[in-house]
Design a protein around this nucleic acid. Structure first.
Ligand SMILES: [Mn+2]
Ligand SMILES: [Mn+2]
Ligand SMILES: [Zn+2]
Ligand SMILES: [Zn+2]
Lengths: 147, 147
DNA sequence: ATATTATTTGATAATAATTATTATTTAGTA
DNA sequence: TACTAAATAATAATTATTATCAAATAATAT
């Protein structure tokens, strides 16, 4: 598993100890494509790592976020999810399945960036602008796609 | 107070009993311009209405949302806030002060709507699209404004 | 106006998600 | 291989929110 070696160096680079727990948790978030919650990460790793506690999962995810290795995003219902993609992108939240799907579109990015470039922003330091699409997944077997 | 009479008819129209609690809570959300949490609504009304309980505030806000009289929006940190504005609009979340500020812009709306009109949307029924701006408020006394 | 009744409320308990505490363990270093 | 600061496991605590249910009340009928 070459991936774990890569994660190991990411941790080192961030000045974090490369513990087994961090490797496993970081790897789990990267493998789960739908922005897992802490609970989801916990249950995905527990078969192979029964000794890792839920508290450690929460604390580790927080550490990874604070050190810029993961992003954190709230669902419309207010639950926190973890995102291995660090670049700015949008999300589609499927209200019926609670899936959170990435949405990338160069053109939309440009459109929005250009739009705000033309605006006067008073008393605000913008950190990021994101588009969120809420909707219902129609066929739960098929993928959601906007293209 | 003419406002309360108006709220009363909104409640009736929605098929809800116009209770004192509902009038007071709805009025409080409308008066507080920064999308209050249930706790904030509770503390804003408790001086004049010491008998209204926090549970009632939560349940009433939920009822008002379910009947289309209020909207509900999660902050980036996952807490729920209540919004008296029902039309589709964006929000600016001020991470330092936790204020949630409305952002209206016709032009941006049109831009986004037109953009998605040109897209193929597969297996998804879009309910709404919103733009969220996260940033830091620079001077806590002055207002945030994008124009 | 009063009685009737389905709804709503207040008090309280319960739950869900997350964070804190602390003794024990471990990764990185010497 | 030993040392030590940092991390973890187990557990308790907290925060935000929802559920329960007996008592109160708004809307309707008399
Ligand atoms: Mn708008
Ligand atoms: Mn929550
Ligand atoms: Zn994402
Ligand atoms: Zn708003």
């Amino acid at each position: 598993m070459q991936k774990l070696t890569n994660i190991k160096s990411q941790l080192k680079e961030a000045g974090l100890k490369a513990t087994h727990q961090r490797l496993v948790i970081m790897n789990a978030v990267k493998e789960m494509s739908d922005h897992p919650s802490a609970e989801k990460v916990f249950s995905s790793i527990k078969a192979n790592n029964p000794s890792i506690s839920l508290g450690t999962v929460y604390k580790t995810l927080e550490t990874l976020v604070n050190n810029g290795l993961l992003a954190k995003v709230a669902t419309r219902e207010g639950q926190m999810r973890y995102d291995p993609r660090l670049d700015n992108h949008g999300h589609i939240y499927l209200t019926n399945t609670k899936e959170l799907v990435d949405y990338y579109d160069e053109e939309l990015d440009t459109l929005i960036i250009d739009f705000f470039k033309r605006k006067r922003v008073n008393n605000l330091k913008i950190k990021n602008i994101s588009v969120r699409i809420n909707g219902e997944k129609l066929d739960s077997n098929k993928e959601v796609l906007i293209k």
